[in-house]
Amino acid sequence: MNRPSQPSVAPALSQRLANAPWWLLVLILIGLFAVFQILTNERSTTIFNAISRGVIVTVRTTLIAYVVALVIGLAVGLARTSSNKLIYNVASFYVEVVRGIPMLVLLLYIAFVAVPLAMDGLNRLGVVLGSAWLSALTPRNFPNEWRVVVGLGVAYGAFESENFRAGIQSIERGQFEAARALGMSYFQTMRFVVLPQVIRRILPTLGNDFISMLKDSSLVSVLGVEDITQITKLYASSTFLFFQAYSILAFIYLTMTVLLSRLVRWMELRLARGRR
């Protein structure tokens, strides 16, 4: 490729053009066009305003469900590395079952089966305890948005637990041994020595999972939660403006995910540059 007589020359212009990120340029152009439409076209402005009302719901459910997933993931991930067979098996049962069911089916199941069952259980408990409040609870006391949070949290908890498990198992044995030899308990070893290193290693994956979750949060529209997808569905079917409505919806998702994935990439680079 390079002739020996001229080392270290800049690549030829044609090659640089061929290697340029054209997809990004196209994406930016489409984005600019969309922004232009939303700003100038009255109908698009109306649609955008109607849909973006749901952004708060989408972001809120994703954020809360993500925190739930992280908590479940950490606990289950630790359980999956446990030498206690009972703990290990309970955790593995959860992970395998949840990972084997489609996200949509899982959401429906949790919303329409698990929550009512749990309410029923609480009612019975209320009767036993003589608590009027517990026995008067109905599934209606559990808003759809909560069910969505539980559903997404339980589903992603299984994925995050695998991240944590793999992260914990990637830490050298010597780290555990050094901590234990100093007299640290299991939890101190995890808290101060192992998990800080695990989190540095899995942070990019955790970030990417947040993006996946943001996208999968569109599934909650089937439960009638008014996120951006649900609002768009309703809007499009009452106005028949399918093209504009769904284009704007896709544009909003894309904006959020592209920004977030840049953020994750930046985090990754910072971690790679800093110490391990």
Partner: peptide, 10 residues
């Protein structure tokens, strides 16, 4: 004290 030191790298 271990052969591989096992200092906490973070």
């Amino acid at each position: 004290v271990f052969q591989q030191f096992n200092l906490f790298p973070h």
